[in-house]
Design a protein around this nucleic acid. Sequence first.
DNA 1: TGTGTCCGAGACGAA
DNA 2: CTCGGACACA
Length: 664
Amino acid sequence: MRKLLSSLNPEQRHAVMHTQGPVLVLAGAGSGKTRVITVRTAYLMSGGVPAENILCMTFTKKAAREMRERLKGMVGKDRADGLTVCTFHALCVQMLREAGEKIGLPKRFTICDATDQITVVKKVLRQLHIAETSVRPWDAKSAISLWKNCLVSPEQALDAACDDREILMAHAFEKYEERLLHSRLLDFDDLLLRGLQLLKEDKASRELFQNRWQYLMVDEYQDTNAPQYAIIQHLTGKKRNLCVVGDDDQSIYGWRGADVSKILRFPDDFPGAEIVRLERNYRSTAPILEAANRVIANNTTRHDKTLIPVIEGGEKPRIMQCDDETHEARLICDEIRLRVEGGDASFGQHAILFRTQTQTRAFEAELRSRGIPYVLVGGMSFFDRKEVKDVLCYLRLLANADDESALVRILDAPPRGVGKATMAKAVDWAIKHGISANAAFQHSEEAGIAKGPARAYSELQSSLEVLRLQLEEGRALTDVMRDMISAVDYRAEVERSYPDEQEQMMRWNAVMEMLNFSQNYERSCKRKKKKPTLHGFLEAIVLSATEDTSAEDASKRGSVTLMTLHAAKGLEFPRVYLVGLEEGLLPHRRSALEDSIPEERRLAYVGITRAERHLTLSFATTRAKMGKAKTSHPSRFLFEMTGKDPYDGWVPIEQSLGFTGQSS
DNA sequence: TGTGTCCGAGACGAA
DNA sequence: CTCGGACACA
């Protein structure tokens, strides 16, 4: 422990050793904020605080995983296992599973993801006779989510609506909530809202959890939104043992209702709070920090601070001009391969960061064709595959027969004689009577559902019912799942949809891979002496808390990391490629309309400050949009960074390859 | 009423 | 290029 403490600077040490009462750590990127949390946790434990009484909260699962890894290294695996290190959402699920019935939550709710939200939104838009051309489902989903994350009710949203579009979306919001309720679904935002409701309304639960988690730590506090903030308030009991760390320059979740002012208000919320500032950057070289400082200085409303480098020397960031996204990917992948083959670096030291998920495609193709190992973070690429989603939806239906959005998805995969006309009738009737579509099928005749489809539907449900009973009797999840796949004849769907035999094989392999997942889940439950349940399995997947991280991390160590800037926050890599620095992409096209250029700038800042030694910024002069090549212009952030026209300062492609630059 | 195919519009970020 | 909706056919 002494060794850990002596590795900190005086300010960090102060924050670590100030264990009683509220502490605010305000600091720039790379100044060791997260280190404060982890060492503080170890310090608390060395002082006799049981691991079970410590709660560390993060915003992304990646950050949670990373933090847990670091803690394992400090206090050992066994003691780290007792700690609660998770995202706000995972925390809420835990609380709700334990005590959700206290606030009247249905016992068997299912969590739904963004795709399901869109499904539900589409349905309510149709119900309200709103054309999808006037209100795009995706936009309505975002608006609803933002409302919920700002603790705005449908009524309040309607009151505050100032144009037709907002009125329509507010109406959709109201219906959306109804539909979710009847499907026994909770979306991600509900997890926070219900978690908060539980803490607020049920005194016993509140005291239970306050007592359990006597020491709270929150990473990236600048990203807390209203429900998360209120959850922290309620969990922090009279003892007020709360330590938050954050940086206003890294606030990148405005679209999720995060409010930077909360970090500034902390001393008012928690009078007597100890405030610690960390200003020295231990992560990056001076030239990289200079670029970061220059960009972020263009934001006007911020705490004026400059990152002070500890590491001296180092090479300047490079700017790379490319013809198009394929060229960009090719150059970067070639360079990575050269570096690794030359013994200069390992694959695991490289990260490729981008603004949008669609940018992954070109990189994945190039990496794969070179046989370079890579890990795609956050994109859930495996779970996004159609066949995997289908299987998951069957599982959801198994867990919750009322789950409408799962039902819609698999009803005709494979076709079984009940199609969308029937489904529409069932849903109409369900909406009219305030019940689920599943319940409406029980009243087929009244709902005007023809005999044939009605029978086909009940055949589906009864074959699922058999499996449900088997689960209740304790049959292993993986076995039930295997039977389910054959009971619904999913193989037929794979064969029907993909005439190409090789593709068929790949798709079917992915389905089989799901069985491995459930087996791993069962195994990890056994390790933790928990009972494996279908609900638990689905939650592990939707929250991506799949405990099989050791395998993932092992492979990651030797792999290039591909991720969005949002996912990259809190992480660091020796060699970073920040790609697609173009107007319309970073800053994103939408940000101009929403008046959120400063947030885009912070996003760029986050990207730059991930780099430890080498930073490469790239832009393409043309980029394919919707299958067509469009001209792109270099990002204003490149201009801000260099103080001159990007075209003037870029490193020619020839030089960016090979080993022309000095290496430190 | 269910299924197959063609065509047209379409992309932000995380849990 | 990739999804989902409309439309034609069974």
